[in-house]
């Protein structure tokens, strides 16, 4: 029972001192092109940029490795399927399955891109404390509803999880053992339904409590953002790297 830990947000590095708004902009500039790339060299460049940012942020290597491994565990599944599901030059034949050169290339590209985005977001987004993230997004013109959803998901996900655990325990206390039968499915459906109803009620109460403290739809923040020359320089640098990555991509297509 704990709130979401945000170990990356605590730090004193160069990146941590940058204006959160500029970190958000740089993150968007670097990750959006990386998501749609087709060129391996461009993807590798994005990966290098991500790795450099992680170094600049001086994040704990153990924690970074932990998260990278967690994400790559999912990517591993891609390697089980993609190399065998594309037509092209055969590379490896395993019984009825043939891995193709094109398939391996695609899996490699996806792996590099995913890790590039992951590293960039860890360094730029992960280093913003959550109490600054909402206001920073709001200042950049992100719709208010989106900011509210982010903030409240962060705050209440564990409260809701706790309610789920309490209800599960109450079920177990009455002899409930999950099996593969109708009774189990129906009970789980009720549990989820009840969780939804409770969350809805809680949302109503929280909103009421906020209105009682003068909330009228807009968040104000204690943090005042002030852009320094360094922030602009960093953003400019990020945009240059982004431009270089896009150039690599375009050169491949033409």
């Amino acid at each position: 029972m704990t709130a979401i830990a945000a170990p990356f947000a605590e730090g004193r590095s160069l990146l941590h001192r940058l204006d959160p708004r500029f970190r958000l902009l740089a993150a968007a500039a670097l990750t959006l092109p990386a998501a749609v790339l087709h060129d391996l060299r461009a993807a590798l460049a994005a990966l290098a940029a991500g790795a450099l940012l992680v170094l600049l942020a001086r994040l704990s290597p153990v924690r970074v490795a932990g998260r990278v491994l967690a994400v790559n565990a999912f990517i591993l599944f891609l390697w089980l399927f993609i190399p065998f599901s594309l037509d092209g030059a055969p590379l490896l034949v395993l019984g009825p399955f043939t891995a193709t050169r094109e398939g391996v290339d695609l899996a490699l590209l996806l792996t590099v891109k995913s890790n590039a985005i992951l590293l960039t977001l860890m360094a730029l987004l992960g280093t913003i404390p959550v109490q600054d993230l909402g206001p920073a997004m709001q200042r950049l013109g992100v719709p208010g509803k989106l900011c509210h959803i982010l903030l409240f998901t962060y705050r209440y996900i564990f409260v809701i999880h706790q309610e789920y655990l309490t209800m599960r325990q109450a079920m177990q206390a009455r002899g409930f053992r999950p099996r593969t039968d109708r009774h189990t499915y129906r009970s789980y459906a009720w549990l989820l339904g009840m969780l939804l109803v409770r969350s809805w009620d809680r949302a109503e109460r929280v909103h009421g409590a906020m209105r009682c403290r003068g909330f009228q739809g807009r968040f104000y923040t204690l943090t005042s953002f002030a852009a320094a020359p360094g922030d602009y320089a960093f953003l400019a640098g990020s945009l240059i790297v982004t431009a270089a990555i896009i150039c690599l991509e375009i050169m491949r297509i033409s």
């Binding site: 409240f152 109460r205 009421g208 409590a209 003068g214 909330f215 009228q216 104000y220 923040t221 204690l222």
Partner: peptide, 22 residues
């Protein structure tokens, strides 16, 4: 229920929420 009232990431943000709205 305090959990309905306290919604900010830190105590300071929560206690300053009302004054900022004012």
């Amino acid at each position: 229920h305090s959990d309905d009232q306290l919604f900010c990431p830190t105590v300071l943000d929560d206690v300053a929420f009302g004054p900022l709205n004012q």
